[in-house]
């Protein structure tokens, strides 16, 4: 691991599928470096005997009966689509 307060901004932006300008990369790297230096303080806490908390009030195995329910109509589901044709969402070419 490199310096733990450095973000490999190109690598992370690629994972996040987010195009950043050179200016954004420079600004975010600096600002997030500040935040990472701040959160380093968690290293001071002894968590060796501690279980993680994902939810404050854990609920396990929430089952729903397998009963068909009415869903959105095609019209409603497509209402917010940027581009549509023949009851389908149109997207740019995926496979050549």
């Amino acid at each position: 691991m490199a310096n733990p307060t450095d973000i490999d901004i190109d690598y992370v932006a690629n994972l996040a599928r987010l195009a950043l300008t050179a200016q954004e990369k420079e600004t975010f790297s600096r600002q997030l470096g500040d935040v990472l230096r701040y959160v380093e303080k968690l290293g001071e806490v002894d968590v060796s005997q501690v279980e993680p908390t994902a939810h404050a009030f854990p609920l396990c195995n929430i089952w729903a009966d397998d009963v068909p329910q009415p869903g959105l109509s095609v019209e409603a589901a497509l209402r917010n689509a940027p581009e549509q044709r023949d009851n389908m969402v149109v997207v740019p070419i995926v496979v050549e």
């Binding site: 959160v39 968690l42 290293g43 806490v45 968590v47 501690v50 279980e51 993680p52 908390t53 994902a54 404050a56």
Partner: peptide, 10 residues
């Protein structure tokens, strides 16, 4: 680690 600290906060 943050989720473990969360336990301690609770």
């Amino acid at each position: 680690r943050a989720q473990k600290v969360r336990t301690l906060i609770r």
